[in-house]
Write a protein that binds this DNA or RNA. Structure first.
Length: 454
RNA sequence: GUGGGUAUAGCUCAGCUGGUUAGAGCAUCGGAUUGUGGUUCCGAGGGUCGAGGGUUCGAAUCCCUUUACCCACCCCA
Protein backbone atom coordinates (compact mmCIF):
# COMPACT_ATOMS: atom_id res chain seq x y z
CA UNK A 1 0.00 0.00 0.00
CA UNK A 2 1.30 3.40 -0.89
CA UNK A 3 1.95 5.39 2.22
CA UNK A 4 1.08 9.03 2.55
CA UNK A 5 3.97 11.08 3.80
CA UNK A 6 3.17 12.11 7.39
CA UNK A 7 3.92 15.77 7.08
CA UNK A 8 2.84 18.76 9.10
CA UNK A 9 2.12 21.96 7.25
CA UNK A 10 4.75 24.65 7.22
CA UNK A 11 4.19 27.27 9.87
CA UNK A 12 2.27 24.95 12.17
CA UNK A 13 3.90 24.05 15.46
CA UNK A 14 3.63 20.46 16.60
CA UNK A 15 5.52 19.42 19.70
CA UNK A 16 6.86 16.22 21.18
CA UNK A 17 5.45 15.31 24.60
CA UNK A 18 8.43 16.75 26.50
CA UNK A 19 8.04 20.11 24.84
CA UNK A 20 4.26 20.10 24.99
CA UNK A 21 4.45 19.72 28.77
CA UNK A 22 6.48 22.90 28.93
CA UNK A 23 4.16 24.68 26.51
CA UNK A 24 1.17 23.72 28.67
CA UNK A 25 2.96 25.00 31.73
CA UNK A 26 3.62 28.29 29.95
CA UNK A 27 -0.03 28.67 29.01
CA UNK A 28 -1.18 27.74 32.51
CA UNK A 29 1.01 30.40 34.03
CA UNK A 30 -0.35 33.05 31.69
CA UNK A 31 -3.86 32.00 32.56
CA UNK A 32 -3.19 32.08 36.29
CA UNK A 33 -1.62 35.51 36.02
CA UNK A 34 -4.56 36.94 34.08
CA UNK A 35 -7.00 35.47 36.56
CA UNK A 36 -5.04 37.08 39.38
CA UNK A 37 -6.24 40.42 38.01
CA UNK A 38 -9.82 39.25 37.92
CA UNK A 39 -10.20 38.68 34.21
CA UNK A 40 -12.78 36.12 33.21
CA UNK A 41 -12.21 33.52 30.53
CA UNK A 42 -13.71 33.67 27.06
CA UNK A 43 -13.63 31.10 24.31
CA UNK A 44 -14.91 31.96 20.85
CA UNK A 45 -15.04 29.78 17.73
CA UNK A 46 -11.96 29.44 15.55
CA UNK A 47 -14.23 29.63 12.50
CA UNK A 48 -16.50 32.60 11.99
CA UNK A 49 -18.68 33.83 9.17
CA UNK A 50 -16.34 35.51 6.69
CA UNK A 51 -18.48 38.63 6.75
CA UNK A 52 -17.96 39.02 10.48
CA UNK A 53 -14.20 38.58 10.41
CA UNK A 54 -13.69 40.71 7.35
CA UNK A 55 -15.84 43.58 8.64
CA UNK A 56 -12.93 45.79 9.45
CA UNK A 57 -10.15 44.04 7.60
CA UNK A 58 -8.29 45.64 4.80
CA UNK A 59 -4.87 45.69 3.24
CA UNK A 60 -2.31 43.39 4.72
CA UNK A 61 -4.51 41.54 7.21
CA UNK A 62 -7.18 40.78 4.66
CA UNK A 63 -4.66 39.02 2.42
CA UNK A 64 -3.64 36.82 5.33
CA UNK A 65 -7.06 35.58 6.34
CA UNK A 66 -7.82 31.95 5.58
CA UNK A 67 -11.23 31.66 4.00
CA UNK A 68 -13.19 28.62 2.94
CA UNK A 69 -16.53 27.60 1.68
CA UNK A 70 -18.85 24.99 3.15
CA UNK A 71 -22.00 24.61 1.16
CA UNK A 72 -23.38 28.09 0.70
CA UNK A 73 -21.54 29.57 3.68
CA UNK A 74 -18.45 31.74 3.35
CA UNK A 75 -16.27 31.01 6.37
CA UNK A 76 -13.00 32.35 7.71
CA UNK A 77 -10.49 31.41 10.40
CA UNK A 78 -9.91 34.07 13.04
CA UNK A 79 -6.58 35.86 12.61
CA UNK A 80 -6.56 37.46 16.04
CA UNK A 81 -8.67 37.43 19.20
CA UNK A 82 -9.62 41.08 19.15
CA UNK A 83 -12.09 40.90 16.29
CA UNK A 84 -13.93 37.93 17.86
CA UNK A 85 -13.98 39.90 21.13
CA UNK A 86 -15.54 42.87 19.37
CA UNK A 87 -18.17 40.64 17.84
CA UNK A 88 -18.79 38.93 21.17
CA UNK A 89 -19.20 42.14 23.12
CA UNK A 90 -21.49 43.63 20.49
CA UNK A 91 -23.58 40.46 20.37
CA UNK A 92 -23.83 40.06 24.15
CA UNK A 93 -23.85 43.68 25.21
CA UNK A 94 -26.97 43.28 27.31
CA UNK A 95 -25.68 40.23 29.17
CA UNK A 96 -22.28 41.64 30.11
CA UNK A 97 -21.23 43.76 33.05
CA UNK A 98 -18.95 46.68 32.31
CA UNK A 99 -16.12 47.27 32.54
CA UNK A 100 -15.91 43.86 30.93
CA UNK A 101 -12.62 42.17 31.70
CA UNK A 102 -11.84 39.06 29.76
CA UNK A 103 -8.83 37.00 28.84
CA UNK A 104 -8.64 34.55 25.99
CA UNK A 105 -5.88 32.13 25.10
CA UNK A 106 -6.36 30.45 21.77
CA UNK A 107 -5.03 29.66 18.36
CA UNK A 108 -5.24 32.14 15.51
CA UNK A 109 -4.43 31.72 11.82
CA UNK A 110 -2.57 33.86 9.35
CA UNK A 111 -1.90 32.71 5.82
CA UNK A 112 1.45 34.35 5.37
CA UNK A 113 4.79 32.88 4.41
CA UNK A 114 6.13 30.97 7.38
CA UNK A 115 9.51 31.90 8.72
CA UNK A 116 11.83 31.48 11.65
CA UNK A 117 9.66 32.21 14.69
CA UNK A 118 6.79 33.19 12.42
CA UNK A 119 3.87 30.81 12.35
CA UNK A 120 0.66 30.44 10.40
CA UNK A 121 -1.10 28.88 13.37
CA UNK A 122 -0.14 30.27 16.75
CA UNK A 123 -1.43 30.93 20.23
CA UNK A 124 -2.26 34.37 21.40
CA UNK A 125 -2.97 35.19 25.02
CA UNK A 126 -5.11 38.31 25.13
CA UNK A 127 -6.39 40.42 28.02
CA UNK A 128 -8.71 43.32 27.48
CA UNK A 129 -10.86 45.66 29.49
CA UNK A 130 -13.87 47.06 27.67
CA UNK A 131 -15.82 50.05 28.93
CA UNK A 132 -19.38 51.02 28.20
CA UNK A 133 -19.20 54.51 26.70
CA UNK A 134 -16.05 55.44 28.58
CA UNK A 135 -13.00 53.89 30.14
CA UNK A 136 -10.66 55.66 32.53
CA UNK A 137 -6.94 56.14 32.08
CA UNK A 138 -6.29 54.05 35.17
CA UNK A 139 -6.96 50.92 33.14
CA UNK A 140 -4.16 51.82 30.75
CA UNK A 141 -1.81 51.75 33.71
CA UNK A 142 -3.36 48.55 34.99
CA UNK A 143 -2.72 46.78 31.70
CA UNK A 144 0.95 47.69 31.96
CA UNK A 145 0.88 46.15 35.42
CA UNK A 146 -0.70 43.02 33.98
CA UNK A 147 2.11 42.75 31.44
CA UNK A 148 4.73 43.25 34.13
CA UNK A 149 3.23 40.73 36.50
CA UNK A 150 2.60 38.15 33.79
CA UNK A 151 6.02 38.22 32.18
CA UNK A 152 7.58 38.14 35.64
CA UNK A 153 5.46 35.13 36.62
CA UNK A 154 7.07 33.19 33.79
CA UNK A 155 10.42 33.67 35.46
CA UNK A 156 11.67 36.26 32.99
CA UNK A 157 13.19 39.30 34.59
CA UNK A 158 15.24 40.87 31.83
CA UNK A 159 12.61 42.67 29.80
CA UNK A 160 11.33 46.17 29.16
CA UNK A 161 7.82 47.37 28.55
CA UNK A 162 7.94 50.25 26.10
CA UNK A 163 5.23 52.79 26.39
CA UNK A 164 3.93 55.50 24.12
CA UNK A 165 0.72 57.28 23.38
CA UNK A 166 -0.77 57.32 19.94
CA UNK A 167 -2.18 60.81 20.43
CA UNK A 168 1.33 62.14 20.78
CA UNK A 169 2.33 60.84 17.38
CA UNK A 170 -0.94 61.76 15.70
CA UNK A 171 -0.83 65.22 17.22
CA UNK A 172 2.77 65.69 16.27
CA UNK A 173 2.22 64.72 12.65
CA UNK A 174 -0.81 66.99 12.50
CA UNK A 175 1.35 69.77 13.86
CA UNK A 176 4.00 69.39 11.15
CA UNK A 177 1.37 68.86 8.46
CA UNK A 178 2.15 65.22 7.69
CA UNK A 179 -0.98 63.57 9.03
CA UNK A 180 -1.56 61.39 5.96
CA UNK A 181 2.03 60.19 5.85
CA UNK A 182 2.36 59.56 9.56
CA UNK A 183 2.14 55.77 9.29
CA UNK A 184 4.64 55.61 6.46
CA UNK A 185 7.08 57.92 8.20
CA UNK A 186 6.86 55.91 11.42
CA UNK A 187 7.35 52.60 9.67
CA UNK A 188 10.36 53.92 7.85
CA UNK A 189 11.94 55.48 10.90
CA UNK A 190 11.37 52.23 12.73
CA UNK A 191 14.00 50.73 10.45
CA UNK A 192 16.62 53.20 11.59
CA UNK A 193 18.61 50.54 13.43
CA UNK A 194 18.54 48.19 10.48
CA UNK A 195 19.22 50.40 7.48
CA UNK A 196 20.77 53.53 8.95
CA UNK A 197 19.96 57.21 8.97
CA UNK A 198 20.93 57.92 5.38
CA UNK A 199 18.72 55.20 3.90
CA UNK A 200 15.79 56.33 6.03
CA UNK A 201 16.12 59.91 4.80
CA UNK A 202 16.40 58.72 1.20
CA UNK A 203 13.27 56.57 1.41
CA UNK A 204 11.29 59.40 2.95
CA UNK A 205 12.53 61.96 0.41
CA UNK A 206 11.68 59.63 -2.45
CA UNK A 207 8.15 59.47 -1.14
CA UNK A 208 8.02 63.23 -1.38
CA UNK A 209 8.23 64.02 2.32
CA UNK A 210 9.66 67.46 2.94
CA UNK A 211 13.16 67.54 4.34
CA UNK A 212 11.93 69.86 7.04
CA UNK A 213 9.37 67.31 8.22
CA UNK A 214 11.93 64.54 8.24
CA UNK A 215 14.29 66.56 10.40
CA UNK A 216 11.52 67.60 12.75
CA UNK A 217 10.35 64.02 13.12
CA UNK A 218 13.82 62.67 13.76
CA UNK A 219 14.38 65.33 16.35
CA UNK A 220 11.07 64.60 18.02
CA UNK A 221 11.53 60.84 18.11
CA UNK A 222 15.07 61.36 19.29
CA UNK A 223 13.79 62.77 22.56
CA UNK A 224 15.23 60.32 25.04
CA UNK A 225 16.32 59.85 28.59
CA UNK A 226 14.54 58.69 31.70
CA UNK A 227 10.76 58.79 31.74
CA UNK A 228 10.67 62.03 33.67
CA UNK A 229 13.29 63.58 31.39
CA UNK A 230 11.27 62.68 28.31
CA UNK A 231 8.08 64.01 29.83
CA UNK A 232 9.87 67.23 30.70
CA UNK A 233 11.28 67.65 27.20
CA UNK A 234 7.82 67.07 25.79
CA UNK A 235 6.48 70.08 27.70
CA UNK A 236 7.77 72.37 24.94
CA UNK A 237 5.45 70.68 22.44
CA UNK A 238 2.35 71.06 24.55
CA UNK A 239 1.05 74.27 23.06
CA UNK A 240 1.65 73.14 19.47
CA UNK A 241 -1.39 70.96 19.04
CA UNK A 242 -4.36 69.90 21.10
CA UNK A 243 -4.13 66.18 20.39
CA UNK A 244 -0.42 66.22 21.08
CA UNK A 245 -1.02 68.01 24.32
CA UNK A 246 -3.67 65.53 25.44
CA UNK A 247 -1.35 62.66 24.58
CA UNK A 248 1.45 64.08 26.67
CA UNK A 249 -0.90 64.54 29.63
CA UNK A 250 -2.17 60.98 29.31
CA UNK A 251 1.29 59.53 29.07
CA UNK A 252 2.29 61.44 32.16
CA UNK A 253 -0.70 60.23 34.12
CA UNK A 254 -0.31 56.61 33.08
CA UNK A 255 3.38 56.64 33.90
CA UNK A 256 2.68 58.07 37.33
CA UNK A 257 -0.04 55.52 38.11
CA UNK A 258 2.38 52.69 37.43
CA UNK A 259 4.00 53.37 40.80
CA UNK A 260 0.71 52.66 42.55
CA UNK A 261 0.57 49.31 40.78
CA UNK A 262 4.06 48.55 42.12
CA UNK A 263 5.57 48.28 38.66
CA UNK A 264 9.31 49.01 39.01
CA UNK A 265 10.30 52.19 37.20
CA UNK A 266 13.14 50.58 35.33
CA UNK A 267 10.81 48.09 33.68
CA UNK A 268 8.63 50.58 31.83
CA UNK A 269 10.29 52.96 29.44
CA UNK A 270 8.69 55.72 27.45
CA UNK A 271 9.73 55.36 23.82
CA UNK A 272 8.22 57.83 21.38
CA UNK A 273 8.99 55.66 18.37
CA UNK A 274 6.70 52.83 19.50
CA UNK A 275 3.76 52.94 17.13
CA UNK A 276 2.28 49.46 16.63
CA UNK A 277 1.35 48.39 13.16
CA UNK A 278 -2.39 48.31 13.47
CA UNK A 279 -3.56 51.85 13.47
CA UNK A 280 -6.77 51.35 15.38
CA UNK A 281 -4.98 52.18 18.60
CA UNK A 282 -5.91 55.64 19.80
CA UNK A 283 -4.12 56.12 23.10
CA UNK A 284 -1.50 54.29 25.11
CA UNK A 285 0.44 51.64 23.20
CA UNK A 286 2.68 48.92 24.63
CA UNK A 287 5.43 46.73 23.29
CA UNK A 288 7.50 44.35 25.36
CA UNK A 289 11.03 43.29 24.50
CA UNK A 290 13.43 40.82 26.04
CA UNK A 291 16.64 42.68 26.91
CA UNK A 292 18.90 40.03 25.44
CA UNK A 293 16.78 39.31 22.37
CA UNK A 294 15.53 42.51 20.83
CA UNK A 295 15.84 40.90 17.40
CA UNK A 296 12.75 38.79 17.95
CA UNK A 297 10.61 41.86 18.28
CA UNK A 298 7.84 42.42 20.72
CA UNK A 299 6.55 39.44 22.68
CA UNK A 300 3.58 41.33 24.04
CA UNK A 301 1.90 44.22 22.31
CA UNK A 302 -1.30 46.16 22.53
CA UNK A 303 -2.90 49.41 23.39
CA UNK A 304 -5.93 51.57 23.88
CA UNK A 305 -8.65 51.72 21.26
CA UNK A 306 -11.57 54.10 21.41
CA UNK A 307 -14.13 52.00 19.69
CA UNK A 308 -13.74 48.26 19.70
CA UNK A 309 -16.99 47.27 18.08
CA UNK A 310 -17.67 50.09 15.65
CA UNK A 311 -18.29 47.62 12.85
CA UNK A 312 -20.84 45.63 14.83
CA UNK A 313 -22.63 48.03 17.11
CA UNK A 314 -23.85 51.60 17.54
CA UNK A 315 -22.57 51.53 21.10
CA UNK A 316 -19.31 53.23 21.89
CA UNK A 317 -17.11 50.60 23.49
CA UNK A 318 -13.62 51.85 24.31
CA UNK A 319 -11.08 49.32 25.48
CA UNK A 320 -7.49 48.61 26.31
CA UNK A 321 -5.66 45.32 26.05
CA UNK A 322 -2.58 43.42 25.06
CA UNK A 323 -1.70 40.17 23.39
CA UNK A 324 1.17 37.82 24.08
CA UNK A 325 2.41 35.81 21.11
CA UNK A 326 2.67 32.56 23.05
CA UNK A 327 3.91 30.35 20.23
CA UNK A 328 6.65 32.75 19.25
CA UNK A 329 7.60 33.28 22.88
CA UNK A 330 7.88 29.53 23.39
CA UNK A 331 9.85 29.13 20.18
CA UNK A 332 12.34 31.80 21.13
CA UNK A 333 12.79 30.62 24.71
CA UNK A 334 13.28 27.09 23.44
CA UNK A 335 15.74 28.13 20.77
CA UNK A 336 17.75 30.10 23.30
CA UNK A 337 17.85 27.07 25.60
CA UNK A 338 16.01 29.02 28.28
CA UNK A 339 13.38 26.41 29.06
CA UNK A 340 13.78 24.14 32.03
CA UNK A 341 12.59 21.07 30.17
CA UNK A 342 13.99 18.33 32.40
CA UNK A 343 11.82 19.42 35.26
CA UNK A 344 8.47 18.56 33.78
CA UNK A 345 7.00 15.08 33.49
CA UNK A 346 3.52 13.86 32.83
CA UNK A 347 3.45 11.35 35.69
CA UNK A 348 4.62 11.59 39.30
CA UNK A 349 5.23 7.88 39.51
CA UNK A 350 5.42 4.88 37.20
CA UNK A 351 4.33 1.51 38.54
CA UNK A 352 6.30 -1.36 37.06
CA UNK A 353 4.79 -4.77 37.79
CA UNK A 354 7.15 -7.73 37.63
CA UNK A 355 4.41 -10.29 37.94
CA UNK A 356 1.83 -11.61 35.50
CA UNK A 357 -1.20 -10.82 37.62
CA UNK A 358 -1.92 -7.09 37.31
CA UNK A 359 -4.68 -6.95 39.94
CA UNK A 360 -2.32 -5.77 42.70
CA UNK A 361 -0.55 -3.12 40.63
CA UNK A 362 -3.86 -1.78 39.27
CA UNK A 363 -5.20 -1.51 42.80
CA UNK A 364 -2.14 0.38 43.97
CA UNK A 365 -2.36 2.72 40.99
CA UNK A 366 -5.98 3.50 41.85
CA UNK A 367 -5.07 4.24 45.46
CA UNK A 368 -2.27 6.59 44.45
CA UNK A 369 -4.52 8.38 41.97
CA UNK A 370 -7.07 8.71 44.74
CA UNK A 371 -4.49 10.71 46.63
CA UNK A 372 -3.95 13.06 43.71
CA UNK A 373 -0.76 11.45 42.50
CA UNK A 374 -0.37 11.25 38.74
CA UNK A 375 0.23 7.55 38.31
CA UNK A 376 1.14 5.61 35.20
CA UNK A 377 1.01 1.83 35.06
CA UNK A 378 3.47 0.11 32.75
CA UNK A 379 1.89 -3.11 31.58
CA UNK A 380 4.08 -4.09 28.63
CA UNK A 381 5.60 -7.54 29.01
CA UNK A 382 9.21 -6.65 28.61
CA UNK A 383 12.44 -7.07 30.48
CA UNK A 384 12.93 -4.98 33.59
CA UNK A 385 15.77 -3.25 31.81
CA UNK A 386 13.49 -2.07 29.06
CA UNK A 387 10.86 -1.02 31.59
CA UNK A 388 13.32 1.13 33.49
CA UNK A 389 14.64 2.52 30.28
CA UNK A 390 11.09 3.63 29.52
CA UNK A 391 10.83 5.24 32.96
CA UNK A 392 14.05 7.04 32.26
CA UNK A 393 12.84 8.42 28.98
CA UNK A 394 9.57 9.78 30.28
CA UNK A 395 11.59 11.42 33.08
CA UNK A 396 9.25 10.18 35.78
CA UNK A 397 10.72 11.06 39.19
CA UNK A 398 9.71 7.82 40.94
CA UNK A 399 9.22 4.19 40.01
CA UNK A 400 7.39 1.59 42.08
CA UNK A 401 8.53 -1.98 41.50
CA UNK A 402 6.06 -4.74 42.29
CA UNK A 403 7.33 -8.28 42.07
CA UNK A 404 7.20 -11.55 43.96
CA UNK A 405 9.46 -10.20 46.71
CA UNK A 406 7.29 -7.16 47.29
CA UNK A 407 4.08 -9.12 47.33
CA UNK A 408 5.35 -11.69 49.81
CA UNK A 409 6.73 -9.00 52.13
CA UNK A 410 3.62 -6.85 51.64
CA UNK A 411 5.74 -3.87 50.64
CA UNK A 412 6.60 -2.07 47.48
CA UNK A 413 9.96 -0.91 46.20
CA UNK A 414 10.09 2.84 45.69
CA UNK A 415 12.92 3.93 43.44
CA UNK A 416 14.02 7.52 43.15
CA UNK A 417 15.06 7.79 39.50
CA UNK A 418 17.31 10.76 39.99
CA UNK A 419 19.43 9.43 42.84
CA UNK A 420 18.94 5.79 41.92
CA UNK A 421 18.18 4.97 45.55
CA UNK A 422 15.45 2.50 46.30
CA UNK A 423 13.94 0.85 49.33
CA UNK A 424 11.01 -1.19 50.50
CA UNK A 425 8.23 0.96 51.90
CA UNK A 426 4.53 0.79 52.61
CA UNK A 427 2.04 2.24 50.16
CA UNK A 428 1.36 5.05 52.60
CA UNK A 429 5.02 5.91 52.92
CA UNK A 430 5.51 5.84 49.17
CA UNK A 431 2.58 8.18 48.63
CA UNK A 432 3.98 10.60 51.18
CA UNK A 433 7.40 10.67 49.60
CA UNK A 434 5.95 11.24 46.15
CA UNK A 435 3.70 14.02 47.38
CA UNK A 436 6.57 15.60 49.24
CA UNK A 437 8.66 15.73 46.08
CA UNK A 438 5.68 17.01 44.13
CA UNK A 439 5.27 19.88 46.56
CA UNK A 440 8.96 20.72 46.32
CA UNK A 441 8.86 20.94 42.56
CA UNK A 442 5.46 22.62 42.27
CA UNK A 443 7.09 26.00 42.01
CA UNK A 444 9.80 24.91 39.63
CA UNK A 445 11.30 27.49 37.33
CA UNK A 446 9.94 27.49 33.83
CA UNK A 447 12.91 29.48 32.69
CA UNK A 448 16.26 27.82 33.23
CA UNK A 449 18.89 29.47 35.41
CA UNK A 450 21.19 31.69 33.47
CA UNK A 451 24.22 29.84 32.30
CA UNK A 452 27.51 31.03 33.71
CA UNK A 453 29.53 33.06 31.25
CA UNK A 454 32.70 31.24 30.38
C1' G B 1 3.65 39.05 -2.98
C1' U B 2 9.59 39.53 -3.93
C1' G B 3 14.60 37.30 -3.66
C1' G B 4 17.94 33.20 -2.37
C1' G B 5 18.79 28.08 -0.79
C1' U B 6 17.76 22.86 0.23
C1' A B 7 15.53 17.94 -0.79
C1' U B 8 19.83 11.01 0.43
C1' A B 9 17.61 5.85 6.65
C1' G B 10 12.78 7.78 11.92
C1' C B 11 16.29 12.46 12.91
C1' U B 12 20.97 15.41 11.57
C1' C B 13 23.89 15.03 7.55
C1' A B 14 28.42 12.98 4.23
C1' G B 15 28.62 11.04 -0.63
C1' C B 16 34.90 14.18 -5.10
C1' U B 17 35.06 16.54 -12.23
C1' G B 18 28.94 10.62 -13.40
C1' G B 19 31.45 4.31 -12.29
C1' U B 20 29.06 -0.99 -10.58
C1' U B 21 27.06 -3.45 -3.36
C1' A B 22 24.72 4.51 -1.20
C1' G B 23 27.62 5.71 4.16
C1' A B 24 28.25 7.97 9.33
C1' G B 25 26.34 9.78 13.95
C1' C B 26 21.94 9.80 16.78
C1' A B 27 17.41 7.00 17.49
C1' U B 28 15.19 1.85 17.41
C1' C B 29 15.70 -3.46 18.43
C1' G B 30 18.88 -7.58 20.29
C1' G B 31 23.24 -9.28 23.15
C1' A B 32 27.36 -8.60 26.96
C1' U B 33 24.00 -8.06 32.22
C1' U B 34 17.23 -13.76 32.90
C1' G B 35 14.90 -8.14 39.39
C1' U B 36 17.51 -2.53 37.90
C1' G B 37 17.59 2.91 33.79
C1' G B 38 20.58 7.28 32.54
C1' U B 39 27.86 5.10 31.04
C1' U B 40 30.51 1.50 27.88
C1' C B 41 31.27 -2.48 24.25
C1' C B 42 29.34 -5.88 20.30
C1' G B 43 25.60 -6.87 16.69
C1' A B 44 20.97 -6.25 13.72
C1' G B 45 17.01 -4.03 11.10
C1' G B 46 15.89 0.21 8.37
C1' G B 47 16.70 3.72 1.53
C1' U B 48 11.99 3.08 -5.24
C1' C B 49 18.49 9.12 -3.09
C1' G B 50 11.24 14.37 -3.06
C1' A B 51 8.29 13.39 -7.87
C1' G B 52 8.27 13.27 -13.38
C1' G B 53 11.05 13.51 -17.78
C1' G B 54 15.88 13.94 -20.48
C1' U B 55 21.40 13.17 -21.58
C1' U B 56 24.60 8.67 -21.09
C1' C B 57 27.14 2.12 -21.83
C1' G B 58 26.12 3.82 -16.80
C1' A B 59 22.76 9.14 -12.85
C1' A B 60 22.05 10.31 -5.71
C1' U B 61 25.70 13.08 -8.87
C1' C B 62 24.61 16.61 -15.19
C1' C B 63 20.05 19.22 -17.71
C1' C B 64 14.67 20.48 -17.77
C1' U B 65 9.91 20.49 -15.30
C1' U B 66 7.29 20.14 -10.79
C1' U B 67 6.21 19.85 -5.64
C1' A B 68 7.52 20.54 -0.75
C1' C B 69 10.38 22.70 2.84
C1' C B 70 14.04 26.38 4.80
C1' C B 71 16.10 31.43 5.04
C1' A B 72 15.46 36.63 4.17
C1' C B 73 12.31 40.93 2.58
C1' C B 74 7.23 42.86 3.25
C1' C B 75 4.20 42.71 7.50
C1' C B 76 3.48 41.02 12.14
C1' A B 77 2.74 37.84 17.85
Amino acid sequence: MKKVSPRTLSGFMELLPDDQLVMNELIERLQRSYELFGFSPLDTPIIEAAEVLLAKAGGETEKQIYTMQKGESELALRFDLTVPLAKFVAANYGALSFPFRRYQIGKVYRGERAQRGRFREFYQADVDIIGDGELGLIYEAEIAAVIYKTITSLGLDEFKIKLNNRKILNGFFEHIGERENSLFILQTIDKLDKIGLKAVINILSDKGIKRESIDETLKFLGVSGSNSEILEKLEQYKDKNETLSTGIEELKEVTESLKDFLVPEDKVLIDLSIARGLDYYTGTVYETFLDKHPEIGSICSGGRYDNLAEFYSKKSLPGVGVSIGVTRLFYVLDEQGLLNKECFSSADVLIIPLVEDLKGPIGIASKLRGRGIKTELYTEKRKLKAKLSYADKIRVPFVILLGEDEISSNELTLKDMKSGEQRGVSLEEAAEQILKRKAQTADIRLIAEKKEEE
